[in-house]
Amino acid sequence: MSSVPDPTLTAFAGFERVAAGSRAEVIAQLRWRADAQPVFVFDDATGERLDLDLREDASAAPDGPATDEQATRGVGRPKLGVVAREVTLLPRHWDWLSRQPGGASVALRRLIDEARRVHADRDAQRASREAAYRFMSAIAGDLPGFEEAARALFAGEGTRFAELLSAWPEDVRAYLQRLAAAAWSGQ
């Protein structure tokens, strides 16, 4: 079983990047800040804005209370990461799945793995565009050319996107270009 690396985060105070690194590194960097300017923290993989608890005693507390669902044994093979969930299909889909070698679960896993492999580039482009847009919306929504930059981002117009960002603050522009880098691959 492979372990998922800790996400990296980037923090902004206004339009200035003030911290970057792992969750623990960013929290440590932000605790040492002397000014009271609000800080926005973003997940580097998704562009989502995060709320971090910067209190000294917060790092010792668990991420949240254990839920009843965690306490009871789930269906599937939880130790292997297999989780049972509900899937709604039409009768013709269930008929087809029942005729596949290994059964429905094996066939679905095989189809999903194949689709992930075939569409990996397209999925990476979409994820990159969505991450860039989340960050743009949170921090740059009032900057000149925001709407045009968003259109260029989703139209796959990398050169136009970069041109529209050229007047934006340097740290915002650099982070956006990093988030959107995979949006232009394969073009």
Score class of each variant (00 low, 15 high):
43 D>K: 06
47 G>V: 02
49 R>Q: 12
50 L>F: 06
51 D>F: 01
52 L>D: 02
54 L>E: 10
55 R>P: 00
55 R>N: 03
57 D>A: 13
58 A>M: 09
58 A>K: 07
59 S>Y: 03
59 S>A: 12
60 A>L: 15
60 A>C: 10
61 A>G: 01
65 P>V: 03
65 P>D: 14
67 T>C: 04
69 E>G: 04
70 Q>I: 05
71 A>R: 10
71 A>T: 10
74 G>D: 08
74 G>I: 10
75 V>L: 15
75 V>K: 02
75 V>E: 12
76 G>A: 07
76 G>H: 00
77 R>I: 14
78 P>Q: 03
78 P>K: 00
79 K>Q: 13
81 G>M: 11
81 G>Q: 05
82 V>N: 07
83 V>C: 11
84 A>Y: 06
84 A>C: 08
84 A>W: 10
86 E>K: 13
87 V>G: 06
88 T>Q: 14
89 L>K: 04
89 L>G: 02
89 L>Y: 05
89 L>E: 12
89 L>A: 15
92 R>G: 04
93 H>F: 00
94 W>V: 15
94 W>Q: 10
95 D>S: 08
96 W>F: 15
97 L>K: 03
98 S>T: 15
102 G>V: 09
102 G>C: 12
103 G>W: 10
103 G>S: 11
106 V>M: 14
107 A>C: 11
108 L>P: 05
109 R>S: 09
109 R>T: 11
109 R>A: 15
112 I>Q: 08
112 I>M: 07
112 I>G: 01
113 D>E: 15
114 E>H: 03
114 E>D: 05
115 A>L: 14
117 R>Y: 06
118 V>W: 06
120 A>M: 12
121 D>R: 12
121 D>Q: 14
122 R>Q: 15
122 R>E: 15
122 R>N: 06
123 D>N: 13
124 A>C: 10
124 A>S: 07
126 R>M: 00
126 R>F: 06
126 R>N: 03
126 R>D: 06
128 S>H: 02
128 S>C: 10
129 R>E: 04
129 R>L: 08
130 E>N: 03
132 A>M: 11
133 Y>N: 02
134 R>I: 09
134 R>C: 10
135 F>H: 01
136 M>N: 04
138 A>C: 05
139 I>N: 01
140 A>S: 10
141 G>Y: 00
141 G>V: 08
142 D>Y: 05
143 L>W: 04
143 L>T: 01
144 P>H: 12
145 G>E: 08
145 G>I: 09
145 G>Q: 07
145 G>P: 05
146 F>W: 01
147 E>G: 14
147 E>H: 12
148 E>T: 10
148 E>F: 10
149 A>H: 02
149 A>T: 06
149 A>R: 00
153 L>A: 01
154 F>S: 04
156 G>T: 07
157 E>P: 01
157 E>V: 08
158 G>M: 12
159 T>F: 09
160 R>H: 06
160 R>K: 11
160 R>Q: 11
162 A>Q: 05
162 A>N: 05
